[in-house]
Amino acid sequence: MSLEINNLSVEVGDHEVLHDINMEIRTGETHVLFGKNGSGKTSLLMAIMGFSRYRITKGSIVFKGTDITRLPINERAALGIGMSFQRPPTIRGLKTRDLVELLSRDNGGETESHAKSLNFSEFLDREINHGLSGGEIKKSELLQLMAQNPDLILLDEPESGVDLENIALIGKVIKKLLQKNLRRLRTKSGLIITHTGLILNYLEADRGYLLLDGGMKCHGNPREMFNTICNLGYEECARCQR
């Protein structure tokens, strides 16, 4: 088992943003989160990663058999959780190249070739996320993940703000990160937030979830769920109550 979330409730400030969430991601599986803006999808990813603003009030998160509910962020990362952020902060004076090289210390330092595969080479010497477009930010995030090489990859809207050509490129990289070419020996798992569903054209997902007002309302085949949402809306998808 890669990730197990049991009865998880999370607060931001005084407001409960997630109520009693349960989910399980088996090793090698990719799951997808659907839901309206503000439904709690990003909060769930941030809580799994361990951000201090997302206070866990109830339940537990278990990763590869270890209870990580109270672990600091960097220790979760060290255990093998990595995340691509939707709106990462800018860090002035720190070059993307320098950070990526620092992260890939144990992974052979393939910064240049990774950047090339993302068409990102010309941005390597920019400060982290400074003056980057939406699409470039996604690439910067993936480049950092490639260096980090995590076992559980949390992707927050990897395709938002990305043009169609680049979605194909990003899709390919994510597919590789998740070892979609391997079937039996796959060790990488994923949890992806998507609004457009476009990313589903590039990689197979095993299960979908619908979050509504901080609660898990439905799970099932991600393709079918996405079609229902597209045709009938989120509420209708929630109504089937599987």
Binding site: M49, G50, F51, S52, P72, I73, N74, R76, A77, A78, G82, M83, F85, P88, P89, I91, L99, L102, L103, Q144, Q148
Partner: peptide, 15 residues
């Protein structure tokens, strides 16, 4: 900013 520190921590870097 705490956000910047935690962002880097999410890459496995200590505080």
């Amino acid at each position: 900013s705490q956000e910047e520190i935690e962002y880097l921590m999410a890459r496995g870097i200590s505080e």
